[in-house]
């Protein structure tokens, strides 16, 4: 259970996230929606402390996350994986090494500096890649992949962390509809099969409606909606998006291709048999 108690973020004079208090039970898939600049990204990045909160508290299974330092903080980041809009992979390393870097927390100084990974880690990374249909590119240099492929590699890296929580910061904002579906299906499968809590920032309304158990709407740093997709009426949505409502809705109209996959694991578009 992830509890937020008045979590705040202030940049100089502007308040990005006003005191937020809510609770996310284990295994829930949560979508955070709102227009750009509403504080979604800041809220998400505070959870793994890539952004430091300015005030308030955050508890995971009763442990105070906001007070962690040094190794304990890195342990929490290892438990709480993150997927980024721009993938944030190391382009010049191969795919396999990028995935294995998800286990760096468990390495000692020498082995991580020398880049030594065990056979078990290699096997585990290959399995994770295979689960996302990406094992065939394991030895390719990462920056030769397409955006959709990179995001799946990033999810594989997150998986080998064996996290308890998965954060996804606009995971599909840089992808075409087909790849967006593959990535969202993968996140949903992880949520269902592994029982991971998934917290996902989304800018399109219907993706959130179709994939998430719960939707949190943010406006100017304030949580203005918190409920199930069915509770999110068009009027409530219009309020969240304000001036950007037309855009969010029209996107909802055009991205009807995005329906949760019938079979739960992600189906890769072209899979090389090996």
């Amino acid at each position: 259970m992830l509890e937020f108690k008045g979590l705040t973020k202030q940049f100089n004079s502007t308040i990005a996230v006003k005191p937020a208090t809510f609770t996310i039970p284990d295994g829930q898939m949560v979508g955070i929606i709102g227009r750009s600049g509403a504080g979604k990204s800041t809220l998400l990045r505070m959870i793994n402390r890539l952004n430091e909160p300015s005030g308030g508290q955050m508890l995971f299974q009763g442990r105070d996350i906001t007070a962690l330092k040094g190794r304990a903080l890195r342990e929490w980041r290892n438990e709480c994986a993150m997927v980024f809009q721009q993938f944030n992979l190391v382009g010049r390393l191969n795919v396999l090494t990028n995935v294995m870097s998800g286990r760096l927390f468990h390495h000692d100084f020498a082995s991580s500096m020398l880049g030594i990974f065990t056979a078990r880690e290699r096997a585990f990374a290959i399995r994770a890649l295979d689960r996302l249909g990406m094992a065939h590119v394991a030895l390719q240099q990462t920056d030769t992949l397409s955006g959709g492929q990179m995001q799946r590699v990033a999810i594989a890296r997150a998986l080998v962390q064996e996290p308890r929580v998965m954060l996804a910061d606009e995971p599909i904002a840089s992808l075409d509809p087909l790849n967006a579906k593959v990535v969202m299906d993968a996140l949903r499968a992880i949520n269902r099969q592994d029982g991971l809590t998934v917290i996902c920032n989304l800018h399109t309304l219907d993706t959130a409606r179709q994939y998430c158990d719960r939707i949190i709407g943010m406006q100017d740093g304030v949580i203005v909606f918190d409920g199930t997709p069915t509770e999110l009426t068009d009027r409530a949505a219009r309020e969240i998006y304000g001036a950007e409502a037309e855009e969010a809705f029209s996107e909802a109209m055009t991205s009807t291709a995005l329906r949760p996959g019938a079979s739960a694991p992600a189906q890769p578009e072209a899979r090389v048999v090996n």
Binding site: L50, N78, N88, V90, G91, F105, S112, Q161
Partner: peptide
């Protein structure tokens, strides 16, 4: 700095962020 953020998010130390990021 994106790869650095990525390594930071997996729980990498400063040395690991530099070495891999």
């Amino acid at each position: 700095m994106r790869p650095v953020d990525g390594i930071k998010a997996v729980g990498g130390s400063w040395f690991e962020q530099m070495r891999y990021g």
